[in-house]
Design a protein around this nucleic acid. Sequence first.
DNA 1: TTATTATTAGTAAAAGTTATCATTACTAAT
DNA 2: ATTAGTAATGATAACTTTTACTAATAATAA
Lengths: 131, 131
Amino acid sequence: MYATDFRMTHQRRLILEELKKVKTHPTADEIYVIVRKTMPRISLGTVYRNLEILSAMGLIIKIEGFGNQRRFDGNTNKHYHIRCIKCGKIDDLPEDAITNIEVDHNKIKGYSIYNHEIQLSGICEQCHNAK
Amino acid sequence: MYATDFRMTHQRRLILEELKKVKTHPTADEIYVIVRKTMPRISLGTVYRNLEILSAMGLIIKIEGFGNQRRFDGNTNKHYHIRCIKCGKIDDLPEDAITNIEVDHNKIKGYSIYNHEIQLSGICEQCHNAK
DNA sequence: TTATTATTAGTAAAAGTTATCATTACTAAT
DNA sequence: ATTAGTAATGATAACTTTTACTAATAATAA
């Protein structure tokens, strides 16, 4: 038999490692810029493909809730995000910022529930001061 | 002085009314198909522009959290959504499905908070039966 | 009415993502 | 080691979704 598993290629590992390093929540093209410093001939398609695969593997998180550009997060611990509606920056929320949330699965008829996301939006300190 | 306000054009009113009629959460191009039945010469750009304006006016809701296509909701009462990860369908959650959520604004330093969204994902009844 | 200007239709362009395909490189069995 | 099989890559084209542009039109206040 031959492997049907994912292969950990140099490109895939680099993308994963760079994403784990940063505390921001970069887009695919921002990651493309970062990894090209180490691997100048990597293609944008490879970045997109691997970000999808890595998130399917559960090694990174895909953030789709803000704006129309996908973002990625190397931190796979369960946490929520807040985005500044002025500058678009995304920050992590502290773990204890949202508490007591209760989801009554019986109230949601027909669905088996897999996940929930919470996204806050507001204005960050910099943008508040800038105005 | 002349008006700096929004004008309620036929196009804008039609888009609003059709969106209020449906219980689904259509994309811009789905709304385009609907309104062309009444107003065949309306342009897709007009649909996009008015959906933005109507949501800025607070008359409709823009849903950005699911997938990479924007959706719109004529129901402006505060409510949450669930999406089927198989077929992509979006349903409203009953009001009492999520309770007790507490957001501690003091824990989120620097931000003034404007809004929060919650998005569940799961598998709907039809897709569950289909498998 | 008339003057002003927001809005429109039509179209082009931009932005973001996915698909295609010949080539490369990883993996497992010989 | 060598080979066979196949997942992954780089390069690029194509596609989808959204935004921008512009001359013409239409809504509104005076």
